[in-house]
Measured scan of single mutants.
Amino acid sequence: KSIMKVYCQICRKGDNEELLLLCDGCDKGCHTYCHRPKITTIPDGDWFCPACIAKA
Results as ranks from 00 to 15, higher is better:
Lys1Pro: 15
Lys1Thr: 06
Lys1Glu: 11
Lys1Asp: 05
Lys1Gly: 03
Lys1Phe: 01
Lys1Arg: 02
Ser2Arg: 09
Ser2Val: 06
Ser2Thr: 13
Ser2Asp: 14
Ser2His: 15
Ser2Phe: 06
Ile3Gly: 07
Ile3Asp: 14
Ile3Trp: 04
Ile3Ser: 10
Ile3Val: 09
Ile3Glu: 08
Met4Leu: 06
Met4Ser: 06
Met4Gln: 10
Met4Gly: 03
Met4Trp: 03
Met4Val: 06
Met4Thr: 10
Lys5Thr: 10
Lys5Phe: 02
Lys5Val: 05
Lys5Cys: 07
Lys5Ala: 06
Lys5Ile: 03
Lys5Gly: 09
Val6Thr: 11
Val6Arg: 14
Val6Gly: 11
Val6Met: 10
Val6His: 11
Val6Ser: 13
Val6Phe: 14
Val6Cys: 04
Val6Tyr: 15
Tyr7Pro: 05
Tyr7Glu: 12
Tyr7Lys: 06
Tyr7Gln: 11
Tyr7Thr: 08
Tyr7His: 11
Tyr7Leu: 06
Tyr7Ser: 11
Tyr7Met: 10
Cys8Asp: 00
Cys8Lys: 00
Cys8Trp: 00
Cys8Arg: 00
Cys8Glu: 00
Cys8Asn: 00
Gln9Tyr: 14
Gln9Leu: 08
Gln9Met: 08
Gln9Cys: 08
Gln9Lys: 06
Ile10Tyr: 07
Ile10Asp: 15
Ile10Trp: 11
Ile10His: 15
Ile10Asn: 15
Ile10Gln: 12
Ile10Arg: 08
Ile10Lys: 07
Ile10Glu: 15
Cys11Asp: 00
Cys11Pro: 01
Cys11Tyr: 00
Cys11Val: 00
Cys11Leu: 00
Cys11Trp: 00
Cys11Gly: 00
Arg12Leu: 08
Arg12Val: 09
Arg12Lys: 14
Lys13Asn: 08
Lys13His: 09
Lys13Leu: 10
Lys13Phe: 04
Lys13Trp: 04
Gly14Asp: 10
Gly14Val: 14
Gly14Leu: 10
Gly14Lys: 10
Asp15Met: 02
Asp15Trp: 03
Asp15Lys: 11
Asp15Ile: 04
Asp15Thr: 04
Asp15Val: 10
Asp15Ala: 04
Asp15His: 02
Asp15Glu: 15
Asp15Leu: 02
Asn16Gly: 12
Asn16His: 13
Asn16Phe: 03
Asn16Ile: 08
Asn16Leu: 07
Asn16Lys: 15
Asn16Asp: 14
Asn16Val: 05
Glu17Ile: 07
Glu17Ser: 12
Glu17Asn: 06
Glu17Cys: 13
Glu17His: 03
Glu17Thr: 09
Glu17Arg: 15
Glu17Phe: 02
Glu17Trp: 08
Glu17Gly: 13
Glu18Ile: 02
Glu18Phe: 07
Glu18Gln: 10
Glu18Thr: 12
Glu18Ala: 12
Glu18Ser: 13
Leu19Asn: 14
Leu19His: 05
Leu19Trp: 11
Leu19Arg: 09
Leu19Gly: 10
Leu19Pro: 09
Leu20Ile: 07
Leu20Val: 09
Leu20Ala: 04
Leu20Asp: 01
Leu20Pro: 02
Leu20Glu: 03
Leu21Trp: 04
Leu21Arg: 12
Leu21Cys: 11
Leu21Pro: 02
Leu22Pro: 07
Leu22Tyr: 05
Leu22Val: 11
Leu22Trp: 08
Leu22Asn: 10
Asp24Gly: 15
Asp24Ile: 15
Asp24His: 10
Asp24Lys: 12
Asp24Val: 14
Asp24Phe: 03
Gly25Val: 08
Gly25Trp: 04
Gly25Arg: 08
Gly25Asn: 06
Gly25Tyr: 04
Cys26Thr: 01
Cys26Met: 02
Cys26Trp: 00
Cys26Arg: 01
Asp27Cys: 05
Asp27Met: 07
Asp27Pro: 05
Asp27Lys: 13
Asp27Arg: 07
Asp27Val: 04
Lys28His: 14
Lys28Val: 10
Lys28Pro: 01
Lys28Ala: 09
Lys28Phe: 15
Lys28Cys: 06
Lys28Leu: 11
Gly29Ala: 10
Gly29Asn: 12
Gly29Thr: 08
Gly29Cys: 13
Gly29Val: 13
Cys30Trp: 14
Cys30Ile: 15
Cys30Ala: 08
His31Asn: 02
His31Ser: 01
His31Ile: 01
His31Arg: 01
His31Phe: 00
Thr32Asn: 07
Thr32Arg: 09
Thr32Trp: 06
Thr32Cys: 03
Thr32Phe: 04
Thr32Pro: 03
Thr32Glu: 03
Tyr33Glu: 10
Tyr33Pro: 03
Tyr33Gln: 09
Tyr33Ser: 09
Tyr33Thr: 15
Cys34Ser: 01
Cys34Asp: 01
Cys34Thr: 01
Cys34Asn: 01
Cys34Glu: 02
Cys34Gly: 02
Cys34Tyr: 01
His35Glu: 05
His35Asn: 08
His35Met: 13
His35Lys: 13
His35Cys: 09
His35Tyr: 05
Arg36His: 13
Arg36Ser: 15
Arg36Ala: 12
Arg36Ile: 05
Arg36Gln: 08
Pro37Asp: 05
Pro37Ile: 03
Pro37His: 05
Pro37Met: 04
Pro37Gln: 04
Pro37Glu: 14
Pro37Tyr: 01
Pro37Arg: 04
Lys38Ser: 10
Lys38Gly: 05
Lys38Ala: 12
Lys38Glu: 05
Lys38Phe: 06
Lys38Asp: 10
Lys38Tyr: 06
Ile39His: 05
Ile39Phe: 06
Ile39Gly: 08
Ile39Thr: 07
Thr40Leu: 10
Thr40Ser: 07
Thr40Gln: 12
Thr40Lys: 15
Thr40Pro: 14
Thr40Tyr: 07
Thr41Asn: 10
Thr41Phe: 08
Thr41Gln: 12
Ile42Trp: 12
Ile42Glu: 15
Ile42Lys: 13
Ile42Ser: 10
Ile42His: 04
Ile42Ala: 14
Ile42Arg: 10
Ile42Thr: 13
Pro43Trp: 05
Pro43Asn: 04
Pro43His: 04
Pro43Cys: 08
Pro43Val: 07
Pro43Glu: 11
Pro43Phe: 02
Pro43Ala: 12
Pro43Arg: 09
Pro43Thr: 13
Pro43Ser: 14
Pro43Met: 03
Asp44Val: 08
Asp44Gln: 03
Asp44Trp: 05
Asp44Ile: 12
Asp44Phe: 09
Asp44Lys: 04
Asp44Pro: 14
Asp44Gly: 12
Gly45Asp: 09
Gly45Cys: 04
Gly45Leu: 02
Gly45Asn: 12
Asp46Gly: 11
Asp46Glu: 14
Asp46Lys: 14
Asp46Val: 11
Asp46Arg: 09
Asp46Cys: 10
Asp46Tyr: 02
Trp47Ile: 08
Trp47Lys: 07
Trp47Ser: 06
Trp47Arg: 07
Trp47Thr: 04
Phe48Ile: 15
Phe48Trp: 09
Phe48Gln: 11
Phe48Tyr: 14
Phe48Lys: 15
Phe48Val: 14
Phe48Pro: 07
Phe48Asn: 15
Phe48Thr: 13
Phe48Gly: 10
Cys49Ser: 00
Cys49Phe: 00
Cys49Thr: 00
Cys49Ala: 00
Pro50Ala: 09
Pro50Glu: 15
Pro50Leu: 01
Pro50Lys: 02
Ala51Glu: 14
Ala51Asp: 13
Ala51Leu: 11
Ala51Gly: 14
Ala51Pro: 15
Ala51Thr: 13
Ala51Lys: 06
Ala51Ser: 12
Cys52Ile: 00
Cys52Ser: 01
Cys52His: 02
Cys52Arg: 01
Cys52Pro: 00
Cys52Asp: 02
Cys52Leu: 00
Ile53Ala: 11
Ile53Pro: 15
Ile53Cys: 10
Ile53Tyr: 11
Ile53Ser: 11
Ala54Cys: 08
Ala54Glu: 15
Ala54Val: 10
Ala54Asn: 07
Ala54Tyr: 08
Ala54Asp: 10
Ala54Ser: 09
Ala54Trp: 04
Lys55Ala: 01
Lys55Phe: 02
Lys55Ser: 15
Lys55Cys: 06
Ala56Pro: 02
Ala56Thr: 06
